[in-house]
């Protein structure tokens, strides 16, 4: 098997995540899709690390995880706050920018 198959998998997962972000309306699911995209990127990092024979890719992946954790914490807090005031977790309900 070719190592590049991991990269194909990464690209596929990333694309699926992107579609999810754009299509789904539940804010929590949107967040999950973002996590999927980040994980796909991590897979690519790890694969490149292996291909290049050094650990820099893994360190980058590690940092990505930390950033993802931060993002989840803050994002979910925002969702909770919005839910508290609007009783809804749909991203379409928060379209006040237009009105």
């Amino acid at each position: 098997m070719d190592i590049s198959n991991y990269l194909y998998l990464s690209a596929l997962l990333f694309t699926i995540g992107a579609v999810g972000v754009v299509v789904r309306r539940n804010a929590i699911v949107v967040f999950m899709c973002i996590e999927l995209m980040l994980n796909a990127a991590n897979l690519a990092f790890v694969t490149f690390s292996r291909i290049n024979g050094n650990l820099d890719g893994q360190v980058a992946s590690f940092f990505t995880m930390v950033v993802a954790a931060c993002e989840v914490v803050v994002g979910l807090a925002i969702i909770v706050t919005i839910y508290r005031s609007r009783r809804s977790a749909s991203v379409d309900d928060a379209s006040l920018l237009k009105r």
């Binding site: 997962l13 996590e35 690390s49 292996r50 893994q58």
Partner: peptide, 17 residues
């Protein structure tokens, strides 16, 4: 999906990750 990815990491010599 995440568990699957974890397995792939380990398979690619990224044990800690």
């Amino acid at each position: 999906v995440m568990i699957t990815l974890a397995i792939f990491y380990i398979a690619q010599d990224a044990l800690f990750l």
